[in-house]
């Protein structure tokens, strides 16, 4: 196992637990982290990124204890935080070159090739503050991947990226050599579904489910339904339903519903997706879900 978390916990001075009793073991590959806001995803990532110390438990990457030897983790780490900002005054090249030097990379060509990899080669001399949101995010991805890290932690990496850029990001992650583990947190379930080799679903700082995407989807087999409903009927039934999707049709609304039992008489079974599996897990854990996801 490349990543091991044993009873990991982090409590802030305010008394709020960011992570409680998180235990998981992940193999090499891409570990997707899913969970609602406030589930502890970012806190878990910050602990693995050595930014903040665990209050209890142990966290190891490739056998290295993160709390005891943070320096060794940092030597192997690429990190893209959720709110990646850019310091005004530097150009794209200068920013990436600075991060590269901090990681021990002094090759100009390595920096330029990384910029090329994220499609920013032509903008190398452009001030970072003039980049669009998507361009900044690409620069963020480049700085995370520079220096051939073994561990890459990316928090909401595809936020602000257009569909084409999201595909480019997935390819970058899958093609990058030397990576042992990518820890990826996102709200876009399809991103996790297409790149993750394992997925951890967390809620209130605890692990709710863990497995490959296929295993998680299999857990929702027989619990996904589709039904043609009239608008008024849908409104009446809505409080008792977990709706994974709605598509307007000529006869009313085609609803995708998640439930262990047939939710309405007209519902027919449908193939489960990862998003359905996630919604089912949250529903069964007591998470307040929106009426239409």
């Amino acid at each position: 196992m490349v990543l091991e978390s044993d009873g990991l916990g982090k409590v802030y001075r305010s008394g709020t637990w960011g992570v409680r009793e998180l235990t998981l073991r992940a193999k090499e590959g891409v570990l997707g982290l899913l969970g609602p806001n406030g589930a502890g995803k970012t806190t878990f990532m910050q602990m693995l990124a050595t930014l903040t110390h665990p209050t209890k438990g142990a966290l190891r990457f490739a056998g290295i204890d993160v709390a005891k030897d943070p320096g060794a983790i940092r030597e192997r780490l690429g990190y893209l935080p959720q709110d990646f900002g850019v310091p005004p005054g530097l150009t794209c090249f200068e920013l990436l070159d600075t991060i590269a030097r901090l990681k021990g990379v002094r090759s100009r060509s390595a920096v330029l090739s990384m910029l090329e990899g994220v499609g920013l080669h032509d903008l190398a001399r452009r001030p970072v503050e003039s980049l669009s949101g998507g361009m900044r995010q690409r620069l963020g991805i480049a700085q995370a991947l520079v220096g051939s890290p073994e561990l890459v932690i990316v928090d909401e990496p595809t936020a602000g990226l257009d569909p084409e850029e999201r595909v480019r990001f997935r390819n970058l992650i899958s093609e990058h050599r030397g990576l042992k583990l990518v820890l990826l947190s996102t709200h876009i379930v399809s991103d996790v579904e297409s790149v993750a080799t394992e997925i951890a679903v967390v809620r209130q700082g605890r692990l709710l489910a863990f497995g490959t995407p296929e295993e998680l989807v299999a857990g929702a087999a027989g619990a996904v339904w589709e039904a043609e409903l009239q608008g008024a009927e849908l409104e009446r039934l809505r409080p008792g339903l977990t709706v994974a999707g709605l598509v307007r049709s000529a006869g009313g609304v085609k609803a995708r519903l998640v439930a262990r039992e047939r939710p309405v008489a007209s519902a027919v079974p449908a193939a489960a997706s990862l998003e359905d599996a996630y919604l089912l897990l949250m529903k069964e854990a007591g998470e307040a879900l929106p009426a239409a996801a």
């Binding site: 910050q46 990124a49 050595t50 930014l51 320096g71 940092r74 030597e75 780490l77 990190y79 935080p81 709110d83 990646f84 900002g85 850019v86 310091p87 005004p88 920013l95 991060i99 901090l102 990681k103 021990g104 700085q143 932690i153």
Partner: peptide, 18 residues
């Protein structure tokens, strides 16, 4: 403060720089 405000601080914190 500039590193903190710009958002690059966490990158530096997670980098090998001592």
């Amino acid at each position: 403060a500039l590193d903190r405000r710009s958002g690059i601080g966490p990158l530096l914190g997670a980098s090998p720089v001592k």
